[in-house]
Computed example of a mutant assay.
Amino acid sequence: MIKKFTQWLTSASGLRRILNIYGPYLGAGVRVRYLAKDFREAKVEMKLRWFNRNYVGTHFGGSLFSMIDPFYMLLLMNTLGRDYIVWDASAEIDFVKPGRGVVSAHFMVTDAMLAEIRDKTADGEKFLPTYEVHIVDADGELVARARKTLYIRRKPARED
């Protein structure tokens, strides 16, 4: 039973389901719309609701930020596998225009990103890449620009 649950949790569809019922995401109205089977792509969105709007009637900035918070870390953890340590190190967000209606963000892990990570961490050194994420409205106009810096290191080889 536990093995079956663990397998479900580590699949892309299982993780997407868990994230969609995760308390902070429910409270913010965030929905994971797509998570690729190979963990190389994700799409999230958030509708403007009474519980995620701010005093002036637009998307609350904290909800916009939480919408994009863990995704590069989650995608890279699952893509690189257990031989790597992946943590969020820092983040910043620039609010470009008020968010109204449905906003969304798209995340991609490219071959070039993976090659750079493997190259920079091959000798066991830490690597602190920064990836930019755009939050856009239904018309594709930029609402916010965020930068996520990750801590990535290859785990030392285990001696048996």
Rank of each mutant, 00 (worst) to 15 (best):
T79C: 12
K43Q: 08
Y151V: 13
I135L: 06
D123F: 06
V133D: 03
R154P: 14
R16N: 01
P129A: 02
S13V: 07
E159Q: 00
W87Y: 13
R17E: 04
L128D: 06
R33M: 01
E116M: 13
R16T: 01
D69W: 09
E159N: 02
P156V: 15
G23F: 10
I93W: 02
P129Y: 00
Y22S: 04
L35W: 01
A115V: 14
T79S: 15
D160P: 02
R100A: 06
G23W: 12
D88R: 05
I18P: 01
K148R: 11
D38G: 02
E45G: 00
G99M: 07
E159H: 00
R33T: 00
D83K: 15
W8Y: 13
V133N: 04
I152V: 13
D88N: 07
I85T: 14
M1N: 00
K97V: 04
D83V: 14
G23L: 10
M77K: 09
K126N: 11
F65T: 02
F65S: 05
K148M: 07
L80T: 12
V56E: 00
L142I: 06
V143N: 04
F60Y: 10
L142F: 04
W8R: 06
K37H: 13
T10H: 11
A157G: 13
V143W: 05
W87V: 07
A36L: 01
V136M: 05
Q7H: 10
I135C: 06
L75N: 10
F39D: 08
L15H: 06
F60I: 03
R100M: 08
Y131G: 05
Y84K: 15
A112L: 11
A122I: 12
R154W: 12
V30M: 10
G124Q: 14
R16H: 00
A138I: 03
Q7T: 10
I135R: 03
K47S: 09
D119K: 15
R145W: 05
G27H: 08
L74V: 06
A144T: 03
W8E: 08
L80G: 14
M73N: 08
A115M: 09
D38S: 04
M113K: 12
K4V: 01
D94M: 05
T110G: 04
F51Y: 13
R31Y: 01
D38F: 00
R147N: 08
L19I: 07
N54W: 09
Y151T: 08
M73E: 11
P129L: 01
R16I: 03
Y84M: 15
V30I: 14
L64E: 02
K155C: 15
K3D: 13
S66E: 03
D137K: 06
M67S: 02
K43H: 12
M77D: 09
E116Y: 11
Y22R: 00
I18T: 07
I135M: 05
V133R: 05
G29K: 00
T121H: 14
V103H: 02
G57V: 06
A112E: 14
D88H: 02
F71A: 07
L15D: 07
W87H: 08
D38T: 02
R16G: 00
I135P: 06
K47E: 11
H59S: 04
G62C: 09
S90V: 00
I152T: 11
N54M: 05
L26R: 12
Y72G: 08
V86I: 13
R145H: 08
M108L: 09
R147Y: 11
A91M: 01
G140N: 11
A89E: 09
R82G: 15
R31E: 02
F39L: 07
K126R: 15
